[in-house]
């Protein structure tokens, strides 16, 4: 059973299509990243899963239940983007309130609240009013409330927003620990470096459509491009390689290393055989990759930043899908 599964999920706000047939599948124990520009539909997708907004069409399931079913929400921890905690609560009382809504018994709450707040590093301020917390502390409190009831699935919408670099690293480590304990994490973040570091799979939404989905390796791989170098003192046979139909370019910063681009459908093996036949020693062969950020930018380049504009004469520019 998948933890999250959507099929042809659609959501429209009036004439605006926020989700245009999104199908994703998140398996247990994964950290799944959701990427996209502002207004791409990421937050809308999360809200549909949690029943905060209703779907227009398609299917959405959460932990074997239909999206929005309170039974499913019992096993989900959620940190929304731009959350607002009531200022009249202390950190402890807020956790106690939410814990009771999740059905956590009072004795467990008394034990787990300090533990969880300790986990996110704000236990020392748990009896202070939330209105005295900094943004980073509120963010940590938000994560803590999402974890209090030991959920199977944790949905985090921009969890490191407002958190300093050290705190971000702690949150990354926390997510990794949660994953190691078998929790599934559904992460929505603009910080692509973080996503690249911890996510198992990533989906990229563009104007309500799922445009790419796969592992980090899948998304960052640059098919048909390799870096090659031979042993020191030997000359790389660039002309011979080009005669085989490959494009060879020395790297600007490392002249002894060459980028070899293959024609469609060919592998790097003929080049390797050529070097061996010439008695050259192969010292460097790496399939070229790009960063997730580069992959993301390449995917969304040229697209409008998550807005729907009226074609002609329209004055309204409306953002969709929350503030993602």
């Amino acid at each position: 059973m998948s933890v999250i599964e959507t099929r042809e999920l659609r959501k429209t706000y009036g004439r605006i299509e926020a989700l245009k047939g999104v199908s994703i599948r998140v398996e247990k124990g994964q950290i799944y990243g959701l990427l996209g520009q502002n207004g791409a539909g990421k937050t809308t997708l999360i809200k549909v899963l949690l029943g905060i907004v209703s779907k227009t069409d398609g299917e959405a399931g959460l932990l074997g239940h239909a999206a929005g079913d309170p039974a499913a929400r019992r096993k989900v921890g959620y940190l929304p983007e731009d959350h607002q905690f009531p200022g009249y609560h202390t950190g402890y009382s807020l956790m106690d309130f939410y814990g009771a809504l999740y059905g956590v018994p009072a004795a467990d709450r008394r034990r787990k609240i300090p533990e969880t707040l300790e986990l996110v590093g704000i236990a020392g301020r748990m009896n202070s009013k939330i209105r005295t917390y900094s943004k980073g502390m509120k963010q940590r409190l938000g994560i803590a409330q999402a974890l209090l009831h030991d959920p199977d699935l944790v949905i985090l919408d921009e969890p490191t927003d407002g958190v300093d670099p050290l705190g971000r690293r702690e949150i990354r480590e926390l997510m990794q620990r949660l994953k190691d304990r078998g929790h599934t994490i559904f992460l929505n973040s603009h910080l692509l470096g973080e996503v690249e570091l911890i996510c198992d799979r990533v989906a990229i939404l563009q104007q309500g459509k799922l445009v790419r989905e796969g592992t980090i390796a899948d998304l960052t791989r640059q098919k048909g491009r390799h870096e090659m170098a031979v042993a020191p003192g030997q000359q790389f046979p660039a002309d011979a390689v080009m005669k085989l139909g490959y494009v060879v370019t020395p790297l600007p910063d490392r002249p002894d290393v060459f980028e070899v681009s293959m024609p469609d459908g060919q592998s790097i093996d003929p080049v390797v055989r050529l070097l061996l036949d010439k008695g050259l020693g192969l010292r460097h062969l790496v399939e070229k990759k790009q960063s997730l950020e580069e992959a993301f930018l390449a995917t969304v380049e040229g697209a409008e930043p998550g807005v729907d504009k009226r074609p002609k004469g329209g004055r309204r520019v409306r953002q969709v899908g929350g503030r993602d």
Binding site: K47, L50, G51, I52, P70, A71, R73, R74, V76, Y78, P80, D82, H83, Q84, F85, P86, Y98, L101, Y102, G103, Q145
Partner: peptide, 12 residues
């Protein structure tokens, strides 16, 4: 906004 999402996401 930001408060209602938190409450609606709870199992109630």
């Amino acid at each position: 906004k930001g408060s209602v999402d938190l409450l609606i996401s709870k199992p109630i």
